[in-house]
Deep mutational scan, measured.
Amino acid sequence: SLSVDNKKFWATVESSEHSFEVPIYAETLDEALELAEWQYVPAGFEVTRVRPCVAP
């Protein structure tokens, strides 16, 4: 099958004044980091952490 098993990760994104967490959907932690950097670094943010979303 061609289905992709995307998992939810939380990326911590920082600017000079703010820090916030955004959801990233990817297959692996490395891919989540790449996606977060691709989305947020060009906008002037720094991705400081990516972690798996742990269900309660």
Rank of each mutant, 00 (worst) to 15 (best):
E34G: 08
D30C: 13
L33H: 06
P42D: 11
I24P: 01
V4I: 11
P56D: 12
V4K: 14
R49I: 09
P52T: 07
A36V: 05
V22S: 02
E17R: 11
A43K: 13
S16E: 10
V50T: 02
P42V: 07
W38Y: 13
A26K: 02
A36Y: 03
T12P: 00
K8F: 13
P42G: 11
E14T: 14
A55N: 11
E21D: 09
E37H: 09
C53Q: 07
E21R: 04
A55Y: 10
F20M: 07
S19D: 02
G44V: 00
Y40R: 06
F9M: 01
S3W: 09
S15H: 08
P42C: 08
A32F: 02
V54N: 11
V47H: 04
E14H: 09
A26N: 01
D30Q: 15
V41I: 10
K7E: 04
T48N: 03
Q39W: 14
E27F: 10
W10L: 08
E21N: 07
V4Q: 11
P42T: 10
S16A: 12
Y40T: 05
K8T: 07
L35P: 00
A36P: 04
K7I: 08
Y25P: 02
E46L: 08
V4N: 13
T48F: 00
V13S: 01
W10H: 03
K8L: 15
K7C: 15
T28F: 03
A26R: 02
V54S: 10
V13A: 01
A11P: 01
H18S: 09
V50D: 01
L35Y: 08
L35D: 03
N6H: 12
E37P: 00
R51E: 06
V50A: 02
W10E: 01
V47N: 02
E34V: 12
E21M: 07
Y25F: 11
P42N: 09
E21A: 05
G44I: 00
N6Y: 14
K8S: 05
Y25Q: 04
L33Y: 13
A55F: 11
L35H: 05
P23M: 14
E27A: 15
P56V: 10
E17I: 09
E34N: 09
S1C: 15
N6Q: 13
A26S: 03
L2R: 10
E21I: 09
T28C: 06
H18G: 14
Y25L: 05
W10S: 03
T28N: 09
V50Y: 01
W10Y: 08
S19W: 12
E17N: 12
R51G: 05
L35W: 06
E34T: 10
Y40D: 04
E34C: 12
V4W: 07
E14Q: 14
N6D: 06
K8A: 06
E31Y: 05
L29R: 05
G44F: 02
E46Y: 04
A43C: 15
T12W: 07
E34I: 14
F20Y: 08
K7W: 08
F45Y: 12
A36W: 03
W38K: 15
D5E: 12
S15F: 06
E37M: 12
V22N: 02
S15L: 06
E14R: 13
V13Y: 04
L33A: 06
V13C: 05
R51V: 13
W38P: 03
P23R: 05
D5G: 15
A11R: 00
T48M: 04
P52A: 11
A55W: 10
S15D: 10
E34W: 13
L35F: 07
V4C: 15
V50W: 02
S3R: 12
A11K: 00
Q39Y: 15
E14F: 06
R49D: 12
E34Y: 13
Y25K: 03
A43R: 11
T48C: 00
F45E: 03
D5N: 15
L29S: 05
I24S: 00
L29I: 11
H18P: 01
S1I: 10
W10T: 03
E34F: 13
T48D: 02
L33D: 01
L2M: 11
V47W: 01
L2I: 13
N6C: 15
S1T: 10
F45S: 14
A32R: 00
V47C: 01
F45V: 03
C53L: 04
S1V: 09
T48P: 03
S19E: 05
V41K: 11
E14A: 12
G44R: 00
F20V: 03
A36R: 01
S19P: 02
V47Y: 00
L33Q: 09
V41N: 14
A55I: 10
F9K: 01
A36S: 03
V22P: 00
V22A: 04
D5K: 14
V47P: 03
P56L: 09
S1Y: 08
F20L: 05
V41S: 11
E31W: 04
Y25C: 06
A36N: 01
